[in-house]
Design a protein around this nucleic acid. Structure first.
Length: 463
DNA sequence: TTTTGAGTTGTTCGA
DNA sequence: GTCGAACAACTCAAA
């Protein structure tokens, strides 16, 4: 005698290549799919991410024949209620390896046990689960390249069979579980009209991926460094929400031999490396891996706050930096090359601790993945054994001229400079007659602040 | 245990 | 304009 099963969707908003869903379908007499609108996660999210999430949920529900149940409330209360209401003996999930998710799942598992219901984790958002790739002596890799070799040698499963033929339980048939039912659009905060979000959902993810494979992956090696051109995959929002599983992507990449495909594979491995680091050292999401960096002299107070605000708004007076920050506000996304540039500027030109920049990114990025985001920031801050050396300080003008040689990127996002032709757009203060009306003067002098950063590093506390 | 080679993504300066 | 060296020192991984 089998009973229905529950699939609790979190960061796996798809039906294809979904092992937890298959486990639920194989075990149960019908599957109820549920998503919990958890305020602990929604409240800190900016409107772009919430809007994108809402769109993904709409698409997911549509592909389930409008059978997705969305409920409000703390997961440890609502998941047991829903599971009991449908008569399930198991709730299936993809494992979550981030600190909040692990805590939450322990609590949910405990409250489920009280009702004699099991929480079963199958699979994860990664090709290889965090913690699995280890050195021969069982310890973790701390350096990417050896991790990458071992990760590649380890290998991963082929994509799972499709979950499209699951027999979904209609939430309308579920008895009153005393939960607040929501529609996806209830989750979306008011989004500015100007916001341009990617097409949400599993189908859009697949289309985007196929398009990248056909058009851009071969040239990815070089083109990814050009924010003025569409050379990146733009898959990060879909990976963040699990609209596609990396295994699906790796299976496609395995058929290619180009340098671009190899470079892209490495980027997927970085995502896994950072998740692995969180598995072993969850505190690294908040604290510098090298504690000296947190003990250095950083700027606080109203002046630092004003500079931070100018950085957030894209009004630093450095066009390449401002273009990136405005792209983030406009699209909830920023080209990765530019992410490094604006991060370096905040840390090494404005002397603001990386944590504040990482928090701003997390609020606005539709792809905001705390492991990749925060460790990317640590890399720029130079706070890990793996990080950039302290003297590696990006030049905000030079980076613009190098990676946006046409100037198109800056003109696209900084409207005040849209009339400035070519590379001159990167040095508006050198224009005859000065910078166009309304565009700010540089808020700091890069050469001076670079020296200041080197000095602070030199005077850092020694262990 | 010791040794050795290597380590995502830069910038500046002087020849 | 181009090119190589200096910018430091340390930890990690593997032999």
């Amino acid at each position: 005698m089998t009973t229905p099963a529950v699939v609790w969707f979190r960061r796996d908003l798809r039906l294809a290549d979904h092992v937890a869903l298959i486990a639920a379908a194989d075990a149960g007499a019908g599957v109820l799919g549920v998503f919990v609108a958890d305020d602990a996660l929604l409240t800190p999210s900016g409107s772009p991410r919430r809007a994108f999430l809402a769109g993904c949920l709409t698409q997911l529900s549509e592909s389930m024949g409008e059978r997705l149940l969305i409920v409000n409330g703390p997961p440890s209360e609502v998941i047991p209620r829903v599971a009991a209401a449908v008569g399930a003996h198991a709730v299936h999930v993809s494992a979550d390896y981030m600190p909040y998710g692990r805590r939450r799942d322990e609590e949910v598992a405990q409250s489920l046990r009280a009702k004699d219901i099991e929480l079963i984790a199958t699979g994860s958002p990664y090709a290889i689960a965090p913690g699995r790739v280890r050195k021969p002596d069982g310890s973790r890799y701390a350096v990417f390249t050896p991790y990458f070799r071992s990760w590649t040698d380890h290998g991963w499963r082929a994509p799972a069979r499709s979950g499209a033929d699951v027999s979904w339980i209609d939430p309308a048939d579920v008895g009153d579980a005393a939960v607040r039912r929501r529609r996806p659009e209830d989750l979306a905060a008011a989004v500015p009209d100007t916001l341009e979000l990617p097409e949400p959902g599993e189908q859009a993810a697949g289309q985007r991926w196929k398009q990248f494979l056909a058009d851009a992956v071969a040239g990815y090696d070089d083109e990814r460094d050009r924010p003025d051109r569409p050379g990146t995959s733009r898959m990060s929002p879909y990976l963040k929400w699990g609209c596609i599983h990396p295994r699906t992507m790796l299976a496609d990449l395995a058929r290619l031999r180009s340098r671009g495909a190899a470079a892209y594979l490495r980027e997927l491995a970085w995502r896994e490396f950072y998740a692995d680091l969180v598995f072993h050292r969850p505190e690294s999401l908040r604290q510098s891996i090298d504690p000296v960096v947190d003990q250095m002299t950083w700027d606080y107070g109203s002046e630092a706050d004003a500079r931070l605000a100018a950085w957030r708004q894209g009004r630093t007076g450095y066009p390449y930096i401002d273009a990136g920050m405005r792209q983030l506000l406009a699209e909830g996304w920023m080209h990765n090359r530019v992410r490094m540039g604006v991060a370096s500027f905040l840390i090494k030109d404005l002397h603001v601790p990386w944590q504040r920049g990482a928090a701003h990114f997390m609020r606005h990025l539709v792809d905001g993945d705390v492991a990749s985001n925060n460790h990317g920031w640590q890399w720029v801050a130079g706070s890990g054994p793996q990080a950039a050396p302290f003297f590696r300080i990006f030049n905000p003008v030079g980076q613009g001229e190098k990676h946006d040689p046409t100037g198109d990127y800056v003109r696209r996002y900084v409207s005040e400079l849209s009339g400035v032709p070519g590379q001159a757009v990167h040095r508006p203060w050198e224009l005859p007659g000065g910078a166009p009306e309304g565009y700010p003067e540089p808020i700091v002098d890069h050469a001076a602040e670079r020296s200041e950063s080197l000095l602070r590093w030199e005077n850092r506390p020694r262990r």
